[in-house]
Amino acid sequence: MPAERVVRGVRKVGATTLAILQRLGFATRFFAAVVWHSPQAFRRLQLTLREIYFAGVLSLVIILVSGMFVGMVLALQGYDVLNRYGANDSLGILVALSLVRELGPVVAGLLFASRAGSAITAEIGLMKATDQLAAMEMMAVDPLARVVAPRFWGGIVSMPLLAALFSTLGVFGAWLVGVKLIGLDNGAFWGNMQAAVDFREDIVNGFIKSVVFGVIVSLIAVFEGYDAKPTAEGVSSATTRTVVESALTILAADFVLTVFMFRGVGV
């Protein structure tokens, strides 16, 4: 019966929509609860510092190395294209704007999600699966304040710094390739870059993006961990979900932010 099949299909769409909405609602309440419990996490700064160590310091290597390579590739590819139009001197502009506006926040966000976000989810999920969160609650210690909030804020603090380091190393990598390897003029490289990159329009907006991505990744990571099914499969699928959801949300949010930020520039 085709009609029946259609009805069943529509019902499935409805059920999925409701499930997604319910989850979003739950995530929003969770977000509010984490923010509500944050003052306790700040009062004991040591807890948050520890999470900055795990989220930020341990992500340093991947961020620095990736940033450097991305910058070097950008310089090679950019030079190849710019050279055709005799605009070699604009290489610094191309690299700096790509990194500061887009690649820095976005790629650092993606790397951060897969390095630190997944680790946060796995850690919290494992604590849940082994009753550590329940044990904490039975000891009259709120896991939201003791476990979740410090990780959340550790991620938010780490992410903009990592994005800035990514962009910086990218510019450095591009300088290595462009100036040291290809032999472009050092003065033109930096001079044109400085003339074209604006502090408010480019640097500040890029920074805002990286803060937003930090909030997104941290929230998804702690939420998925806290919400994970308390089993081995539950934790592993929650970890996967963290990476996938973070990547999609970062890219979507990046589009929205870009529309608002760079509207009217160059148009």
Partner: peptide, 8 residues
């Protein structure tokens, strides 16, 4: 707790 639930 069952299996202790020590903080790992």
């Amino acid at each position: 707790f069952q299996f202790g639930a020590l903080f790992t």
